[in-house]
Design a binder for these strands. Structure first.
Length: 465
RNA sequence: UCCCUUGUAGCUCAGUCGGCAGAGCAACGGACUGUUAAUCCGUGUGUCGGUGGUUCGAGCCCACCCGGGGGAGCCA
């Protein structure tokens, strides 16, 4: 009879006591203890914690292999799970066999049995998921992704796959990555200009900066849809909150107005937080203790309180009356700076805030013009520590207004003919928003730098791995 | 892209006035004989980010370039 292979997660549960099982994973530490035997801590990624394995000196390969078993080596270990005699864990395994699958040379393996800086670990992005922090981040990120699908699917939304390669520049402003198969060393030239008709698609094409416009086409057919995929921005931004490649979730709903949009955003955020707190307690415990004390309490508070909703005009008013010294002066009509948003969400409200009804001049052409003629039905969800986590709006469904706004923004209406068709044929009020997955991971884990919440970060000047 | 800051051993960092490159940890060798980040003794380790310049002599001074961090803008 073969021994059952169970995960470290299973092996750490009290129910496993008494069973003889097999675990497979990687050595985190080895402590040779004073009794002619060793403690081996094994982790297989299934959970935050390790399984402590006791390898006795009587094992055949004890002297030859186990006493020199190095951090990072892969092992298959068989033994009996017992209640732990020591502190710090419920169970431990008494090994009857320790098989070494692959050695990680102690002199060459970069990860040491100590803390490394996140900056250094970025250089070893292929190995950093083997650390406590990055394992925990990966599991939380997974849960946020899963709960996204869970939330929308349970709410009658359809998952729509919008294209990665596109010819449309969603907001008329975003800097895009060009996609081309033209030979860069000898570009086909016509009249002194590159002849894009000879490119793969017969015209210029780019990586998407947003699936929103395409998403609207399906929302105005299927009712409620969401997209969840990678997006690309060729902006030269070097901050702890920006990536060149990041994942975005964009729901789009027919017959939704701005307040429906806000309600959905709030329910969605709360669902994700609830799921992470429920399913990742060990990982969250780690973030609480080692990354950002207070995160769990802050998240719990988000669940308990309704989000504050505040118009742009009210926000400007509060900022002006605050008496706070800002580097950038506040006045109605100017875009809110990071310091302003931080004041509102971190000091004034101390929790998530939904700001809405922004001046039309500082927002995109597709956002619905309000009756005042000055503002558009836009909304941003701001969150302490991270800032803008969601940006959304009710979309302009009136053909004439939309066309006018487009022209005013310097866009060619004929280029967006298919987008305008949605207003020509059975137009409806509709709304949607975009949530940056990485910012959500930052918010839930307390991780300071966005480069540490995505497996292989892409940023200006950095595309390793 | 702008401002500030930083790059020295596998890792964290020191390096004075321009004059032979140095600590801790890790690793390695040994001792200790139920440990939970790092018990004791001993032994190594270098393209000083890159290129050019000044100088008898540059880790140190100058110029340019490339990374990292913090802040700003852009946004999610």
């Amino acid at each position: 009879m073969t021994t059952a292979w169970i995960s470290i997660k299973e092996s750490r549960k009290a129910e496993s006591i008494g069973q003889t099982v097999q675990v497979r994973g990687w050595v985190r530490t080895r402590r040779d203890s004073k009794g002619g035997f060793s403690f081996i801590e094994v982790n297989d990624g299934s959970c935050f914690g390790n399984l402590q394995v006791i390898a006795d000196g009587s094992l055949a390969n004890y002297a030859s292999e186990i006493t020199s078993l190095s951090v990072g080596s892969s092992v298959i270990i068989t033994g009996e799970i017992k209640a732990s005699a020591g502190q710090g864990q419920a169970t431990e395994m008494f090994a009857s066999e320790v098989r070494i699958t692959g050695v990680a040379s102690a002199t060459d393996y970069p990860l040491q049995k100590k803390q490394h800086s996140f900056e250094k670990l970025r250089e070893w992005a292929h190995l950093r998921p083997r650390t406590n922090t990055f394992g925990a981040v990966a599991r939380v990120r997974n849960r946020l992704s899963f709960s996204t699908h869970e939330f929308f699917q349970n709410d009658g939304f359809f998952y729509v796959h919008t294209p990665i390669i596109t010819d449309s520049d969603c907001e008329g402003a975003g800097q895009m990555f060009r996609v081309t198969t033209l030979p860069l060393d000898k570009l086909p030239m016509t009249d002194g200009k590159v002849d894009m008709s000879q490119d793969f698609f017969g015209k210029s094409s780019y990586l998407t900066v947003s699936g929103q416009l395409e998403g609207e086409t399906y929302a105005t057919a299927l009712g409620k849809i969401y997209t969840f995929g990678p997006t690309f921005r060729a902006e030269n931004s070097n901050t702890s909150r920006h990536l060149s490649e990041f994942w975005m979730i964009e729901p789009e709903m027919a017959f939704f107005e701005l307040t429906d949009n806000m309600t959905l955003a709030e329910r969605y955020l709360k669902h994700m937080i609830q799921e992470v707190l429920t399913h990742c307690p060990e990982d969250m415990d780690f973030f609480e203790k080692r990354i950002q004390p207070g995160v769990t309490a802050a998240l719990q508070l988000v669940l308990d309180k309704p989000f504050t909703r505040m118009s742009y005009t009210e926000a400007v008013d509060i900022l002006i009356k605050s008496g706070e010294k800002f580097e950038y002066p506040v006045a109605w009509g100017v875009d809110l700076q990071a310091e302003h948003e931080r004041f509102i969400t971190e000091k004034h409200i101390q929790g998530p805030v939904i700001l809405y009804n922004y001046p039309k001049e500082i927002k995109s052409f597709y956002m619905r013009l309000n009756d005042d003629g000055k503002t558009v039905a836009a909304m941003d969800v701001l969150v302490p520590g991270v800032g803008e986590i969601i940006g959304g709006s009710q979309r302009e469904e009136r053909l004439d207004v939309l066309t006018e706004r487009m022209v005013a923004s310097g866009l060619k209406a004929e280029y967006y003919w298919w987008y305008l068709d949605l207003r020509r044929f059975g137009t409806v009020p509709h709304a949607g928003f975009g949530l940056g997955l990485e910012r959500m991971v930052q918010y839930t884990t307390g991780m300071a730098n966005i480069r540490d919440v995505i497996p292989f970060p892409r940023s200006p000047g950095n595309c390793d791995f």
